[in-house]
Design a protein around this nucleic acid. Structure first.
Ligand code: MN
Ligand code: MN
Ligand code: ZN
Ligand code: ZN
Lengths: 144, 144
DNA sequence: TCCTTAATGATACTGAGTCTCATAAGGTGG
DNA sequence: CCACCTTATGAGACTCAGTATCATTAAGGA
């Protein structure tokens, strides 16, 4: 059980491990991601990185998701968002008002998931579990 | 705690309760949904119902989701699917190979969700939990 | 440095979903 | 049963995310 990438270098190493080339554009995408705090959309990145083509941004994000460097989260309204991954396997809480993403890993959840797996007719390929919240900061802001 | 709509009439009643008009098109959409067994896409319905405009199909699906008559599920690749709702609050397992959707309601899950809610900084607005599976039928079919 | 191969960018394209607005019903009150 | 007001509809344009194409560029191993 290895830890998920947390730094620029880790992210680059993850790409190398996958046998991919380290290009200037990929470095730029990774740097832009690390520069951000919370979640972001693909289009935001594409706009910010004027020197990198839109298609390349989308392609790179897909690679980084595959390498567990970032996570793709889908909001209830269908909006896809990305956020840097810090924990190996985890779930998310997303503030639907400001987009802040928190990761959490809960042993109990995993245990339940395993017991449910037994009740399901078929092979479990994966699962998704997300909490949609209104975060503490947004609540505080709402109360003047 | 009332039960989710299970018949045509229940679905129509749900729309009435929401103060909406019962039109021929909405009846057609509901009938087509009830005719199906598992999950379906919006475009499938739109194609099947030649007499109903595409925009109307999308509009009606949104209303039915709001009235808990159907559920909207998102596959890992982002494909949105719908399936008739049978249980009040529940989660889904989706076969990523044939699209079969099963609903399940698990007390243990709900208990865990509540305990997690306590750990999260903010108000929980909702959650999503889905299992992506390869169903028994698809497994059997794969083994000759 | 050279060479092969992977990556890129510009652009066209797809598919889901939404918007507009003129027209067509639904359904309520008379 | 009708008239009227309002909601719903359809046709098609449009937006937006994401993908495909393909000629050009550049990584990085030999
Ligand atoms: Mn994450
Ligand atoms: Mn359901
Ligand atoms: Zn927030
Ligand atoms: Zn299946």
């Amino acid at each position: 059980m290895n830890t998920a990438p947390t730094s620029q270098l880790d992210a680059i190493a993850a790409l190398e491990d996958a046998g991919l080339r380290i290009t200037g554009q990929r470095r730029q995408v990774i740097a832009a991601i690390q520069r951000r705090k919370g979640g972001f959309t693909a289009e935001e990145l594409a706009t910010e990185l004027e020197g990198v083509g839109r298609a390349t941004v989308y392609r790179t994000l897909k690679l980084l998701v595959g390498a567990d460097v970032i996570c793709k989260i889908v909001l209830p309204d269908g909006t896809p968002m990305y956020s840097p991954s810090r924990v190996e396997h985890h779930h998310h809480s997303v503030c639907t008002s400001c987009g802040a993403v928190e990761e959490f890993r809960d042993i109990t959840v995993e245990r339940v998931l395993r017991s449910l797996a037994r009740e399901i007719d078929g092979d479990i390929i994966g699962h998704r579990m997300e909490f949609y919240i209104r975060c503490g900061a947004c609540l505080a802001a709402a109360n003047d």
